[in-house]
Write a protein that binds this DNA or RNA. Structure first.
Lengths: 331, 331
DNA sequence: ACGATTAATGTAAACGTTTACATTTTAGCT
DNA sequence: AGCTAAAATGTAAACGTTTACATTAATCGT
């Protein structure tokens, strides 16, 4: 790989001048710019981002870190894509990692981000990781939180209004006349999961309906627990007439369970899920969902981070994007 | 951020010794190792991957580049996840990019990979990008191709046997008695797409059946063209009795088109798609597919790359993994 | 045409590591 | 104790940039 030095030698100028033409900055005489560029061209020179990042104290490194639980979840893929599009538009690359919500992995990757001196990192924190995330923030790394929040710390955050979303779903079920509504909730360690439960409770309270504690179960956001919990619910002596699943995987799991019992949807059991996904429309029946604007969450987070980088003393933003109730055929 | 120098000063040893304890290599007296470690601990020292990468000529940089068309396609997400799991197990981080199969983006990211001096890159090439990919390979960057191949170049590749997969699907349809079988093919610029078409043709030839050219249409792997082309096919005076869609998105598009016409599946039209995805089972009807072992493709590719890094003159591997015909209810 | 400004270019240090080589310390023998 | 070999540690250069500062070249007003 040719280096600055090679270009300097070939063009007959010093490395400083070459560096200047690369950075387009300062004043360099058009004729020398031209011959330097010719030299770069003929060598196939490409500046080393590594050397640049090492030396440069102030400027942008054009590298972002993103840590998501699992890219196989369409919601995460959407967020990632939103981030990436903004990143690419600004010539940033992104180091993307899967944490599986495991503390150990999250910690490892957080260290990688520091060690790579990325410009900043975007991630959804979970309860266990808070300490590690906080530490990184304190060390001065720009961070924006997505999808989930940490209480009591001043950091840019872009969330979805989970309580409104969940409440909208339940309101709709209640309006349909349902009164025995089950919730398959997510892990209590995740803030969005707690919020969705809050929305569920709020809807009941406002409608002056009692919550049957037997009807709320908590899973771990996977398809298999979704199915298992739905089966438990269906086996109750007095089963629910409607089920609200707190994320996409558990909704599909519940769908499977209902099909397995040969129950009709929505006639025998209504179903609604949190999170939209590309094939929700094509399910049997088309699944009603509350759709998070995940792509926009990603975009917004990335833009927020970029803004902060170019202007560190911007006030902290805590954004909350609105979910949308999409009614299809399952309720 | 504390540096080697800070640790050296605090511990009273030289930077060389500190470097040695970091790398666990060489012989350093247990007592000094201990005090150096204590110093590192108390400073919260983390070695800079950037400086390390700049200096070190031989060793591993523990950084991989991955360029995929679009992470929102579950197939890509699976591949990415397979790669990432192997990467993490070996303490590698990965720079993940979406190319949208656009030459410009692919070129940009390829440059980023070189400029970041990653250890190697994994990507599915497409026809337009071949030149850029070839150039990178010539420059000495370890590359492994996934999912698609480039003809005539000696480079590690892990593919899926697309012709066998497609042929298996068509064979099954023929066995079911279908004779007017349509194919919604992918872009000719993508090798896997051409191979799937080849499998389609091969099945016909072996069965001594003629192909009606009217029945093969080529789309661009998106859901909307899948639907549009399926509608065209259904509108034919003599429509097909079975449809084979060359990827997941187009299969779902076709499903939509068929539903829109209120045709029964598989009674009126049978449908089978290439690519499995988490909700194929829950579609209406559950979709039969030929499933690519995408996760394994990712794992294999990453392992291949790692192997090559530790042993550059390993013979070139061209692996072809077998797809699996998964029969559900759509044919 | 001459000195004073200003513009263009060059020199060298710095970023945080690794590593070849030099130096010092320790251990092993007699 | 004293010599030698081996082990431990230190010194300094290098990786490829950016950048403060120094130097040289160009421009301009008189």
């Amino acid at each position: 790989m040719p280096s600055l030095n090679d270009v300097a030698k070939l063009s007959g100028y010093s490395i400083a001048t070459v560096s200047r033409v690369i950075n387009g900055s300062d004043k360099v005489t058009p004729s020398t710019r031209e011959s330097v560029e010719k030299a770069m061209e003929s060598l196939g020179y490409l500046p080393s981002r590594v050397a640049r990042r090492l030396r440069q104290k102030g400027g942008l490194r054009h590298l972002l870190g993103v840590i998501l639980p699992n890219i196989q979840n369409p919601i995460n893929a959407e967020i990632a894509r939103g981030i990436e599009d903004i990143a690419y538009a600004n010539r940033f690359a992104v180091i993307l990692c899967n944490s599986d919500d495991k503390y150990e992995k999250e910690k490892f990757y957080l260290d990688v981000m520091r060690a790579e001196s990325v410009d900043g990192v975007i991630l959804p924190p979970n309860q266990e990781s808070n300490a590690a995330v906080l530490e990184v923030i304190e060390k001065g790394m720009p961070v924006v939180l997505v999808d989930r929040a940490i209480r009591g710390v001043q950091v840019d955050t872009v969330e979805v209004d989970n309580v409104i979303g969940a409440k909208a779903a339940i309101d709709h079920l209640i309006q349909l006349g349902h009164t025995r509504i089950a919730m398959i909730a997510g892990p209590g360690s995740i803030s969005n999961s707690r919020q969705r439960k809050r929305g569920f409770e709020k809807a009941f309270k406002e409608a002056n309906l009692p919550i049957d504690p037997e009807l709320v179960r908590t899973g771990d956001y996977t398809q298999s627990t979704g199915r298992a919990l739905a089966e438990e619910l269906l086996d109750l002596t007095s089963p629910p007439t409607a089920v609200f699943a707190s994320n996409n995987f558990m909704a599909v799991g519940a769908l499977e369970a209902i099909h397995k019992r040969n129950l009709r949807i929505p006639e025998d059991v209504a179903l609604i899920g949190f999170d939209d996904f590309p094939w929700a429309e094509s399910l049997d029946p088309p699944l009603s969902v509350v759709k998070q604007p995940a792509y926009e969450v990603g975009q917004t987070a990335a833009q927020l981070l970029l803004d902060r980088l170019s202007n560190p003393d911007l006030p902290i933003s805590k954004l909350r994007l609105s979910p949308e109730l999409i009614l299809r055929k399952s309720c």
